[in-house]
Design a protein around this nucleic acid. Sequence first.
DNA 1: TTCTGTCGAACGAAAGTTACAGGATTTCAA
DNA 2: TTGAAATCCTGTAACTTTCGTTCGACAGAA
Lengths: 211, 211
Amino acid sequence: MKKNLSKQKVIHAASSLFFQKGFHGTSVRDIAQRAKVNVSSVSYYFNGKQGLLEYAVTKYYEEYLETIEAILKATENWSAIDRLNELIFTIIQYKQSKLQLTCFIQRELTLDSIFVREMTITYLAKENFHIRTAFFNVLAGKKLPGDERDYLLMQLKGMLITPYILHNEWKDRVIGDYSHEVFVKKYVATIQNWLKFIVENEDVSDKFQGK
Amino acid sequence: MKKNLSKQKVIHAASSLFFQKGFHGTSVRDIAQRAKVNVSSVSYYFNGKQGLLEYAVTKYYEEYLETIEAILKATENWSAIDRLNELIFTIIQYKQSKLQLTCFIQRELTLDSIFVREMTITYLAKENFHIRTAFFNVLAGKKLPGDERDYLLMQLKGMLITPYILHNEWKDRVIGDYSHEVFVKKYVATIQNWLKFIVENEDVSDKFQGK
DNA sequence: TTCTGTCGAACGAAAGTTACAGGATTTCAA
DNA sequence: TTGAAATCCTGTAACTTTCGTTCGACAGAA
């Protein structure tokens, strides 16, 4: 069963290089060289460079959504706040487990291309729906004016991606599996602490309205 | 005085295209075509594509740091919290005023290249110092264990870049100059509200320590 | 054989850059 | 003010390199 051994090597090398140099900044020859396979293997297995990208991103998001939806199903009768907290933990944990791919995809999604728009429709819309629903359920009891909910949602979503944007500043601190665990635990706690404030604070909207 | 008219056109076209398709995803012929100038103009004025990048980024950060340091000097005898609030406002306002360049540079900084490392040493280190100092001055009165300050700082820095990472999700809401103003006002208020919580809350570290 | 994977070599296209000619503009001495 | 030299800018066309992809040959497994 040595089947698809090269395929795996290509994926691994590509993840690493895309993360480091970006999609357009990486050539198939770079990938082949690092994976120690022939150049033509990329086209053979993935139908070209673009196909390799689609394969990796699709696989990432399929698993991501699967994980999210599983945790939402498993916590159906929890309180809204507990559910959201669990969701946050799950998301950060997943992203941390595929650190390079997460950073790379996060970066690529800031582009404006046909591929990004397709991914947005297929996956990001679902992700956004889950987070939004879970967050708004927590906020259900509070009376927040107009678009303040949206700004808070943006703040939350920002916290979920920050470590993977500012990765260059933090890579020194997170080395090895142990550090990963510690980071997830502490960072999730930081977010959940913010969340607690949002829920408990009564007059969040004072400043917001410019009073 | 029609001098350097082409130069300006190139910069404008490049900012727009780099923002949309990324640095490596944009060709000099793309830029020349949109700017309606000749291909060779890019090399003539900027010493090649890489030179164009360096010119744009350097100019952006020179002005950015100048703005930041000016506001820090002008608020020298303010209270720590007022100063930080003013700093946050200034940063968001500047970034919003150069939206496309901000988004592009933010994305490019997630790469791992010689150029990024140089920018980090030359500019990001200074930016980080200013934000860090201003933030830690606010936190001076509080006793926070170990690395919690760092996690909070990360959270703050994340808030300062979030709109320019999640720009694709928000571009529909911010169109025209009026919306820009409104956005700055509301988003800054959201951050400052978070900050207020950080300062006032006594037991931020409970959850953090895993208790 | 037949199928699957691997390899080197080569292809055309597109990349960034440059050489050079010609036009436009500025400079400056007469 | 004038005219010529110097400088700046633009355009064409080509160059070299590198890109992604494909072809055909070959080897091992089914």
